[in-house]
Amino acid sequence: MSGEESTASGAVAGTAAGPLAGVAAQPGVPKPDAILVADGVTRSFGGLRAVDVAHLEVQRGAITALIGPNGAGKTTLFNLLTGFDRPDSGEWSFDGRSLAGRRAHQVARSGMVRTFQLTKALSRMTVLDNMRLGAMGQAGESFWRGLIPPLWAGQEKENTARAMDLLRRFKLDAKCHEYAGSLSGGQRKLLEMARALMAQPTMVMLDEPMAGVNPALTQSLLGHVKELREEGMTVLFVEHDMDMVHDISDWVVVMGQGRVIAEGTPDSVMADPEVIDAYLGKHHDDVATDSSEGDS
């Protein structure tokens, strides 16, 4: 475990955000303003301990990357935190409220909305309907009220306007009446992110947002993720590609074999021997920080 103070000045990454500047680069370090705090979260599949996180805090309003080699437990941790899987033990709170034992839709309603590694565009629905579905608190989503259009038509109009705004931002507005299944892989990623934003979350959890996206779209996706931070949202995302992580994240959490093995600014993490060991195996002398684990 590397207990040394972060020496990264942020000169390279340029994203060593103010509040995180003085935070020590060590696993489980407290953050000045943590929105998500997890304690003792474990999950085993048979004999394999997939997730064993002693303590983890995620800073509010920052972009935090969750990296680690294949099988490190990143997606499993995502599933646990968002209520899509139940942990064997552990407590975690989001925005001051405990989320342990909450089901997935309750987690989403509390303001933590996720996307999926394998994109879940709702294929046989139009792009616009995908978006409208994302809006929270719709009166017409109750059966009886749904039968009487005047009770929800106004809200529907507002949601549609907001959906079109988001679609324009994600350059999908021209496709709004097409089936989501007809979009390209990258466009589906964009749609999924835009749909998550329809829910007006305070924290967005992106599971490999860049996987399988062509390089041109990747840049635009990165731009969108940065915009989320500018709008005050907290972003936690899983990613393999170290270059991309380096580009946009304020803070990096590294997982290996279910545990958090390192934390810090992008530069400090990439120089951390523990991380290099986890990615490349021990006894590897080359500092190859751009080891991309491509399994898109």
Partner: peptide
Amino acid sequence: EAVRSLGKN
């Protein structure tokens, strides 16, 4: 799962 992730029961 996608629908669940958008807060619907």
